[in-house]
Design a protein around this nucleic acid. Structure first.
Lengths: 168, 168
DNA sequence: TATTGTTATACTCTATAACTATA
DNA sequence: TATAGTTATAGAGTATAACAATA
């Protein structure tokens, strides 16, 4: 039921996007244009499936990153996620307003604001992660597992990421 | 020389993007996040390699689309490219100001503005196309041809495009 | 009545620089 | 001096609705 709703949302997005990339234009036959449109589609999907949880992709990214390293400061989050520090201020403000995180002064360097995820923040992350996982499964479900693997690796190469950072 | 400059630009973009997607975050291990970042990288690359020609990706898209069907109206361009009609107004305004295109009333339906590409517009499209081709070759050059093929097809599937619209 | 193009408006995003407090 | 965070501001981009001309 929640799954059905998600599927409907994703199909609507794909349909909408497909119109915007009709074969009327030669651009649709270039890899570059397709990659841009796919990125937009994935972002739109993320926004829509996260909406019911009350957070946006950026908040999700912050919470997700903090779930692995809980000692990151605003500055470190900014550089890790490619978000400008002044934008990060508003982001953390919003997370604080919603009770999902709070700022704590670092004892060793009082300039730094460590961002601490609250239990409520952890709960919303769990829900959001499930929604994202389900959406990803659904969106990429039209691909073969070989295609998905190549997509993952090729994107990593394009972004200059180390291949398989954590083996086995 | 122009080629060297392009390579430097692209490497700079990849480096910048790579920072924004460091392995500090578990997001970098998801296909979705990678696809979003790849799309952003491709878009940034397009903007930078087109800059010397005086046009932006959207102007390029319009000119490119018109080069295949020269009878399109603003409305048709809007839907084909997924750009809002009110945005298309400014876009065509800019192309007119630069002497790359002009509006002509359709004789059969005077509401429609057919967008006509001028010789100057065709010239800039040729230059822009060359710049885009070279950039694409350079950016995707780090991939194997198998990877590129899968990327192209998988992106097409994700966007709901017909496979191989023009065979042979 | 409906559609094409246009204009106006408000809203969101982003980029830049200045400011503070700490180091 | 340099850095972390904050604030202010301006610019770009986007979405919405209203409007005139035409169908």
């Amino acid at each position: 039921m929640s799954a059905t709703f998600t599927a409907a949302v994703i199909n609507a997005i794909r349909k909408e996007l497909a119109v915007g990339i009709s074969e009327q234009t030669p651009l649709s036959q270039t890899i570059g244009y397709r990659l841009i449109k796919v990125g937009e589609m994935v972002m739109e999907t993320a926004e829509q499936v996260l909406a019911p949880t009350g957070i946006k992709p950026r908040h999700f990214n912050v919470l997700s990153t903090l779930s692995v390293d809980a000692t990151l400061s605003q500055r470190e989050l900014s550089t890790a996620l490619g978000i400008d520090p002044n934008v990060m201020v508003d982001l953390i403000d919003e997370l604080e307003r919603q009770g999902f995180a709070r700022r704590e002064r670092s004892p060793v360097d009082r300039r730094r604001h460590i961002v601490v995820v609250t239990p409520k923040g952890k709960a919303v992350l769990t829900k959001a992660q499930a929604a994202v996982n389900e959406a990803e499964e659904r969106v990429l479900g039209v691909l073969t597992s070989d295609q998905r693997q190549v997509l993952f690796e090729a994107a990593g190469v394009l972004l200059g990421l180390a291949p398989v950072p954590r083996a086995g």
